[in-house]
Amino acid sequence: MKRAISAAIAATILAAPAIAETVAPGDVAYDEAGAVAASLSGMPGNAEEGANVFGSKSIGNCVSCHEVTALADVPFPGNVGPSLDGVADRWSEGEIRGIVANAKMTYDGTIMPSFYKVEGFTRPGDAYTGKGIALDKIEPLLTAQQIEDLVAFLVTLKE
């Protein structure tokens, strides 16, 4: 009996930080250059999962604008954005996190969408239906953990 209780408490303690430390889109702390120092989910990211988010049309779809040699097997990468080969030589982890969460904090007026933002849109729609959406129903394009997975993947891109 006593054992079962302490196991339950231990489980709560282990699980709690992940929930407690997820930073809401409106609370992300960008520094003046647009970088974000701490993990948005409070957890480390998974590079393999990040590569999947990057290449999947239904998730990040980053390949619609960016080419990456490491993902040469994903067909038809776009070139609206720069190739991300060697991106980790150009930017620190915190800078990359800031660019992925909201690139407009780093590059004023960039065409790159903001992936962790829920406010300030003109005529937001319900995904790709063409119909409107209630403002309080808008979810960020990616979850905090998906952003962390992307960051973990992108920091491996060194030349």
Binding site: N61, V63, G78, V80, I111, P113, F121, T122
Partner: peptide, 27 residues
């Protein structure tokens, strides 16, 4: 005007990026 959750205007695709590829689409 940049619309929607992707915040893209007609100009973003058809003025700033014609000739570029957005995935398999040639703008």
């Amino acid at each position: 005007t940049r619309t929607g959750q992707l915040e893209l205007s007609c100009a973003n695709c058809h003025e700033d990026n014609y000739g570029n590829m957005i995935r398999a689409d040639h703008l």
